[in-house]
């Protein structure tokens, strides 16, 4: 089950946020300001976590010479008894954050993340009316995201 999806920019500002109505979802509606706080907090925690990565992992990371904002370091998952938070970063530093039910695992999240990322590239970045680092308001992106979520929340 997917509860909500956040997309944040490279600097941690909230580009897109949506809660999905599901049965017994623990997510309650927040004030719009609080959504911004949640997004930037997660962004900050991710940055801190990437500094806390064990030296072994950093060594491997340097050896692989991957991009600085790849997902080798940083926060990937937060588990609670009632929900899980998954986050993943694209090569340009956009973060896609998903709130899901505890039965969601990383493999299933990876498939969902790929789809969200693909729709972001198609329907947001190829839209001439969208400006980078501005909130996403694209009707086609909404409808395709809804179909992804509907496929998970059956």
């Amino acid at each position: 089950m997917l509860y909500s999806i956040y997309i944040t920019s490279r600097s941690g500002s909230l580009l897109y946020q949506k809660d999905f109505k599901t049965v017994n979802s623990p997510i309650t509606k927040q004030r719009s300001n609080d959504y911004l706080v949640i997004a930037s907090t997660l962004h900050g925690v991710h940055a801190i976590a990437s500094k806390l990565t064990p030296p072994d992992a950093v060594h491997n990371y340097q050896k692989a010479k991957t991009l600085a904002n790849s997902n080798r370091t940083g926060l990937r998952e937060i588990s609670t008894s009632r929900f899980k938070i998954f986050m993943n970063q694209t090569v340009t530093g956009i973060k896609i954050i998903v709130f899901a039910s505890p039965d969601m695992d990383e493999a299933r999240f990876a498939a969902i993340y790929d789809k969200i990322y693909e729709h972001y590239c198609n329907y947001v970045l190829k839209n001439p009316f969208y400006q980078l680092d501005m909130p996403i308001r694209c009707q086609l992106f909404d409808t395709h995201l809804n179909s992804v979520v509907a496929g998970c929340n059956v």
Partner: peptide
């Protein structure tokens, strides 16, 4: 295919 026209440009067709 990938373009959604926002509300403030209503009536515009690319």
């Amino acid at each position: 295919k990938y373009i959604s026209v926002p509300k403030e440009y209503e009536g515009l067709n690319c």
